[in-house]
Design a protein around this nucleic acid. Sequence first.
RNA 1: GUGGCUGUAGCUCAGUUGGCAGAGCACCGGGUUGUGGUCCCGGGUGUCGAGGGUUCAAAUCCCUUCAGUCACCCCA
Length: 440
Amino acid sequence: MSKPTPISGFPEWLPPQRMIEQYVVERIRSTFELYGFAPLETRAVEPLDQLLRKGETSKEIYVLRRLQEEGPGGDDALGLHFDLTVPFARFVLENAGKLKFPFRRYQIQKVWRGERPQEGRYREFLQADIDIVDRDTLPAHYEAELPLIIGDALGGLPIPPIRIQVNNRKVCEGFYRGLGLTDPEAALRAIDKLDKIGPDKVAALLAETAGASDAQAKACLALAEIRTDDASFADAVRTLGVSDPLLDEGLAELVEVVETAAEHAPGLCVADLRIARGLDYYTGTVYETQMQGYERFGSICSGGRYDNLATAGTDRFPGVGISIGVTRLLGLLFGAGELSVSRSVPTCVLIALPAEERRRDAGRIAEALRRRGIPTEVSPSAAKYGKQIRYAERRGIPYVWFPGGDGTPDSVKDIRSGDQVDATADAWTPAAEDLRPVVN
RNA sequence: GUGGCUGUAGCUCAGUUGGCAGAGCACCGGGUUGUGGUCCCGGGUGUCGAGGGUUCAAAUCCCUUCAGUCACCCCA
């Protein structure tokens, strides 16, 4: 048996990174709950036809197959979900009778995509998703609320500042329609490449794939160039002289999002009319998020409004959602050495062992500390104290506890400063910042 | 999924026209009959990513494969 090797796209991190991940997830989770989102977990698999229901874009889906299975899977084959929105829409339809609308829920789960991995792109990764759905109609104010929640959740973490770029598909579609373009999808795809390939090549692409004339291509590019952190983008669009009811609707919605953000979280959001992500099921507002200094790695958080995803017969549940790519976020920062944790284990106190016969005494001390919420472990062996201290030092454990005996009291040493004081396990308390590992 | 680049110790990397696998840091043992970090002495800890081929001889040349990374596609 040769040495095991990693599997491409399925990252596994060491305990320090996992501690950071748990810390980040907990911050996100508690923020979501602070805004009233209810927890939900859906199964890892969906019927393939559910997964493919709305996205004509062929996502690379992992299919579930039993080893002993005979013959091909068939229509009811199962696939691993590639996001949390599609399973959620299915769940809403399935449980509509038991849910209260509008329904706010969060979901933090692994998702799987069979794409080629590279830095910040994985085949198995963690998403933290919030969505709000309502029955029949969904007020537009939710679209302004979501970015604020993300700003709050990520703003409290030791990561670079984020910038949420917002657009509205109605603006683009309305504009293209008013312009006389017949294939808005193709136009969006072309415009989306603006940052990457530049205006000249986008213009050529627009002509080629969307059948745009020179003037039309020029107008599309002019629209895409618009980017403001206040409502002035709307005037800039109107200056382009295209009129369409859908365009006006989109502009009004986008103004609402940007103005709300500007009031509650200045600098968080920017209206960026080149953003086209989420081509498949989004129908209105779309979000994309970049970390300052990590722009080239793409979006770490995106989403949008979908009016037709959760629809069955006459039941319609329009929704809006946004999803943080936790694994990408962390993978990029780990790669840059930007996130660290103060120790590699949760342990706050190591109980040193004077002799193996004293292990039970040490155990009693450890129990007393743990009862008061202080993470404690007992030394693995009664090696020389120097070695036991080194055991703690290697792991970043801040305190070593020396059991007394024969009339001498216990004492505890802060091995960073060397300070050592007499202590009793019923009363001693570490500095508050030392109780848990600190992420920074 | 398509194409390019890169894989040598825990980490960063040397390794000549094919000729006995190396350095720094880290780590381990000892000096230090139990309180670490400094200092001194000692130790290379390795399937040269893996498998096959050419050769007297392969880390080095060839093929395949795996992994990482970059571009495309797409996206968290």
